[in-house]
Design a protein around this nucleic acid. Structure first.
Lengths: 251, 251
DNA sequence: TGTCGTGATCTGTGATCACAGTTAGGTTGG
DNA sequence: CCAACCTAACTGTGATCACAGATCACGACA
């Protein structure tokens, strides 16, 4: 069966002979991104969460956030609504909205899911990564190494570079929905994973993350899915073990 | 003249000496569930999506939905906002909000993710399922078998029983976040997976689903994770293959 | 001194209004 | 008869207002 309708813009070339330009200026300008205020606020809050800038248990006020961002309460409501749907924030019955406090059991479940999902992503990335992908990851690895090795360690820079490195890896898998899935996991794990970085960058000195990243990169160059998965799992497990040791998790 | 006004429940049973009960009546009553309108609307739309009652590409109007549900536009906005965050609905730039239309590539990615995540859930369920869990799943299996074998087939009943069966399995894994993850996948796959059931229940007659369910149950009874995963993967793959054959997916 | 009631203040939720942008339908001009 | 325009209805977004419920601090009572 033939497609009943022409694909949009099927006859753009030789289009009615109207604008005789091979490439019109109109084709150059991309559709300017129309981002609603609600989406912008959502992005802002997401960034704060994954970076650990919002501590578990911290309470947010719609009106305060709205005022801080210079918008009305409405877009903030929408953003909180979305994040609450993903359990990245939680709204207590009649009280305020706050960053969820994970129990030990919840944190362990989250870690197991990360091992499964991100491990799969690493495998897939190892199969499909192009040299360009690997080069991109190497750049973030260098940035992470530099931030972590600095004296004193650049915690914020390390957290940021670590995020970029991981998601550059997941991008290489070429599965958009998978990335969204992992972003949701990071949204939940971010606050507890990165909260201590602020006051306690000692973990970076251990070097386990840098070692895992090195093994990961080598596995990518060899296109070895199993090794890539193993390296990433070690990275996740080591960070999780450190968090559990700090004992900041509730019962 | 009777005593003026008794304090509320003052003489229930020698109230002053009251708290001598080991268990007060106050301990019996559970906190009554407080569900906001927004949450209720969200649940309503979610049910419609997973059941395939909303077709891919179908457009929704906030005002129409609000009127249909007898609420104001506000709760509907919140519900749509949440579902859009999960890509279960999408809001076109300046137009309406509609049920996403999956491309073939998107559908295949979704299927792969389901194999990974739901396969893991099946493994875990096989390890942890109690006889009660298995019995619960068997009930839904019987309901599904009955609905699918009826003449004419009870499509709605089969879809519903199939959903109950799968999520009873995932519940047995005892991982709440995992269930939410799977619910999001079903939210995206539901419309395309179940749309044809309405007009074309022929697929049920094939019996591949019933066979996979039987193998799954047997694996659960034997506590065999690998077999449970294999059975579930066959179930998912068979349904996905059928959908691809119908060719309702866009480019 | 400890406990409970009470009021002011702040919370999220829901409704209503205003608006820019889009869509669809009908009409007009060729 | 067809295409282009134009208007009216409808879209989601955002702001503002109203309200029930929760929190917290202060004060009165036991």
């Amino acid at each position: 069966m033939i497609a009943p309708v022409q694909p949009l813009g099927a006859d753009l070339e030789n289009a009615s002979a109207a604008p005789e330009h091979d490439v019109s200026a109109l084709d150059e300008i991309g559709a300017l991104q129309r981002e609603t205020l609600g989406e912008r606020v959502t992005g802002e809050l997401r960034a704060l969460l994954v970076a650990g800038r919002l501590a578990p248990g911290e309470k947010l006020s719609l009106r305060r956030v709205a005022e801080a961002l210079g918008v009305s309460m409405m877009p903030v409501r929408e953003a909180v609504s979305r994040l609450a749907a993903d359990r990245a924030l939680e709204v207590l019955p009649g009280r305020a909205v706050r960053v969820p406090v994970l129990s030990l059991a919840q944190f362990r479940e989250l870690t197991r899911l990360r091992l499964v999902v991100e491990g799969f992503a690493a495998e897939e990335a190892a199969r499909r990564a192009t040299p360009d992908d690997v080069a991109r990851i190497e750049v973030f690895d260098a940035a992470f190494r530099k931030a972590a090795s600095a004296d004193p360690p650049d915690s914020a820079g390390a957290v940021s570079a670590n995020r970029d490195l991981h998601f550059a890896l997941y991008e290489a898998a070429g599965m958009p929905s998978l990335i969204e899935m992992i972003e949701r996991l990071w949204l939940k794990a971010g606050p507890i994973l990165n909260i201590d970085m602020r006051d306690e960058p000692r973990r970076l000195k251990g070097g386990s993350a840098m070692q895992a990243h090195a093994r990961l990169l080598e596995a990518l160059r060899r296109q070895d899915p199993a090794a890539a998965r193993a390296a990433l799992e070690d990275d996740i497990a080591a960070a999780a073990a450190h968090i559990e040791e700090t004992g900041q998790l509730s019962a």
